[in-house]
Amino acid sequence: MESALDFFTAKALLEWQIDLGATEAILDAPVNRYDVGARSPAPHVPGPTAIAGGPAEPMPAAPDPVALARRLAAAAPDLGALAEAQQDFDLCELKKGARSFVFADGTPGARVMILGEAPGRDEDLQGRPFVGRAGQLLDRMLAAIGLARAAPDPDRAVYISNILPWRPPQNRKPEASEIAMMLPFVERHVELAAPEILVLMGNTPCGALLGREAISRIRGTWTEALGRPVLPMFHPAYLLRTPQAKRDAWADLLALQARLRET
């Protein structure tokens, strides 16, 4: 029987291996790395077929956000159900970073419906559209032609919403994919609110519903979308940055007032 190594011999052998470059012990016995046959075969990992005991099922495809939004919107019988369906929609990343879901304000059934772009900081905090400085300017603009969001009379009332119900980070411009997945909700929103006239404030709603974003060229020109007369106007936030454009905004308000009197 071979005698066990004494401490000093074992220590000397270990130091010799360290001098040769060995850094860690992995196996109980040495492996000749030049001998291919000595290498251990890669462990077998059973695939989906072996695990399931039959053909592997394909991974489910990611849902189409636009198609899902279209189905949910179409199934909403009224504004309350539509708001609930849109608020529960989880495929828009904006929802994760927003504080509030901002659906609408004003009087449903009003003759005029205003669509803006998206909530800002104040709207995100309060959960209502157009409540910051731009919203306060909008209220003054509407009052100048006898309209108000809180008016109980549908002839004087205004209903207000946005293309997006959640605030984009840092108030950035909405992305095309975000607009596309919210558009079915917007279209159903307009259908259920049933306004006589749509006012699109700013480039984003004009791009979403008219396919054009040149607001400086198309503002004040009556057109049509979703089967209704449409008046593109400057967004109140733009008017705060560009006071000289208020003259054009006033002309557009008078055009809106005249159209309401005609119908």
Rank of each mutant, 00 (worst) to 15 (best):
E175P: 00
I218H: 13
A251R: 12
A83G: 08
A25P: 00
K95C: 14
N162P: 15
F101R: 04
A4H: 02
A157Y: 08
A194E: 13
P41K: 08
E175S: 03
I18L: 14
N171F: 08
P46C: 03
D35Y: 02
A69T: 12
A150I: 10
R172P: 00
G202K: 05
A143V: 13
L5P: 11
V102D: 05
T242C: 11
Q86L: 10
P154M: 01
R172T: 15
Y159W: 15
L198M: 11
T221D: 09
L5S: 09
P41I: 11
Q86P: 10
I114E: 13
A73H: 09
R71C: 02
R111S: 05
R33E: 13
Q87N: 10
P195F: 01
K246A: 15
Q244K: 04
Y34S: 15
D122R: 04
L210S: 09
A81V: 02
R259I: 01
R247E: 14
P63L: 10
I218F: 14
F89V: 06
S3I: 01
G109I: 05
F185G: 08
P60A: 08
D64H: 04
R99M: 06
E187V: 03
P152C: 11
M181W: 07
D248P: 05
M141Y: 09
A104W: 06
P46A: 12
R228C: 03
F185C: 09
R217W: 07
P108W: 03
T49A: 14
Q136H: 11
G132W: 05
L68N: 00
F7Y: 03
A157K: 06
P174M: 08
A74L: 15
